[in-house]
Structure formats: structure tokens, C-alpha cells
Computed example of a mutant assay.
Amino acid sequence: MKKFFISFVLAFSFSFAAEAQIPSVTLKDINGKTVRTDTLSNNGKPFIIDFFATWCKPCNRELTAISEVYEDWQAETGVKVIAVSIDQAQNVNKVKPLVDSHGWTYDVLLDPNGDFKRSLGVQTIPYTIIVDGNGKIAYRHNGYVEGAEEELIEKVRELQAK
């Protein structure tokens, strides 16, 4: 019975995640431009939202690992990565230097008050979401271990095959 309940909860959670839309929160990018999160898109193709912080070593490893294959991913699938920093206001000035020093070519948004993070139920980072071409959340993943980026691109490929 316990296994059935756990399976049911997991299945319900996944179906809920697959139907959820991106909530509307107003953020700024690292250049100071205002961005509404409900307008994030990738011209009908899937995109990845990756929550990180400058002080989070697993987050930085994940974004660096993705960066190493990002050009290939874009050529194959057209996927776009949007990195969202949850650094607090006093530390947002560290985000752009970190991004520049790693050579990350992602769109980078700042969520210093954690509004976007909270609206999506993100508890810990790194936290990654894949949004399908219709703006619906199709996949969520928490944490990072080496090689986990391969799971991300596989999920993107699955979305494109549908």
C-alpha cells in the first residue's frame, strides 16, 4: 500500500508539473533590462531554466558542464538555457563577473528576492526546469551530479519527438 501511495504521488506530481505554466514574475537580466517570466520563450522550441547562485559549487559545475556542450545542443535541438541567479541583492554584483569569467552564453536573470523561485516551489539549488515549446513545464530536476546534463538533453529530445 505504501509503495502504491508513493507511486501515485510521484505520478500526480509529474502530471501536475507537465501541465503547469511559467508564473508571471518581473525580474531583471544582468544588464538591467526588465523581463516578465511568463513571456520567456524559445520560438516554439523547448528551453531550460536553471536556478543557481554564485556561492553554489554544484550549480556552477552544472552550468559549466552545460556550457561545454551548449553549442552542440543548440545546433541539434535549438534549445536555449536561461540561468536564474537567486543571489540576494547585496551579492547580485557578483553574478555578471562570474558569468563572464566562465564564458557562459546563457540569458541570465536575477531573482534577488526569490519571487520567481518561490512561485515555482524551488526549495534548493541547483534546480532545473525544462519548458516545452508551448510554455508548459515538462520536467523538473533538483541537484547536480556529473553527467546529469545528459539527462537534460535527452528530455529535450523527447519533447521534440512528440
Rank of each mutant, 00 (worst) to 15 (best):
P46S: 03
L63Q: 03
N43K: 15
V92T: 15
R36P: 00
F47R: 02
D50H: 12
G103L: 07
I49M: 13
G147K: 09
E150Q: 14
G133A: 07
F51V: 07
K136E: 07
D111S: 09
Y70W: 08
S67N: 14
V79D: 07
I48R: 02
S85L: 08
A83C: 12
Y144Q: 09
V145A: 13
K28Q: 15
A89W: 03
F14T: 11
T105A: 13
A20Q: 15
N43G: 12
S24M: 12
D115N: 15
T54C: 02
E149R: 06
N134L: 03
D107P: 04
Y144K: 13
P58S: 10
L120P: 10
S101H: 08
S13H: 00
A89F: 07
S7R: 08
T54Q: 08
Q74L: 07
N31M: 03
V145C: 02
Q123H: 08
S119R: 11
I137G: 01
Y106P: 10
W104I: 10
Q160H: 00
V108G: 06
A138M: 02
E62L: 14
F14Q: 07
I125K: 02
A53C: 07
I129K: 01
W55S: 09
G143A: 06
E146I: 09
L159R: 04
E151F: 06
Q123Y: 04
E146Y: 07
F12T: 15
I66P: 10
V9P: 01
L10S: 08
K155R: 13
A75N: 13
T34A: 06
F116I: 09
F5Q: 08
N60A: 03
I30S: 03
L109F: 08
Y144S: 06
I82R: 04
N91R: 14
T54K: 10
E146Q: 13
D38A: 11
V131T: 08
I125F: 05
V84P: 09
Y106Q: 07
F14V: 14
I30P: 09
E71D: 14
W55L: 03
P58E: 08
F5N: 04
V92P: 11
V95Y: 02
F51W: 03
D29R: 00
N93E: 13
G133M: 08
Q88V: 11
D50Q: 10
V95N: 03
F4S: 06
L40A: 06
V92L: 03
D132T: 10
T64I: 12
K162C: 00
W55R: 13
P58L: 07
F12A: 15
N134P: 00
N91V: 00
D107Y: 01
S7V: 04
V35T: 01
N31S: 12
S85M: 11
M1F: 10
I137L: 12
P97I: 02
G103V: 12
G44C: 13
K94H: 09
I125Q: 01
P46A: 06
S7I: 09
T26Q: 14
L159A: 01
T34Y: 02
R140C: 05
V131A: 06
L27P: 05
S7A: 15
K57M: 09
K33C: 00
E76K: 15
L159Y: 03
N113I: 02
I48Q: 01
Q21V: 11
K117A: 11
D132Y: 04
L120V: 08
G121M: 12
H141F: 11
M1T: 09
V25S: 02
Y127E: 13
V131D: 01
R118C: 00
L110R: 00
E149P: 08
L110W: 05
A18R: 10
T105I: 05
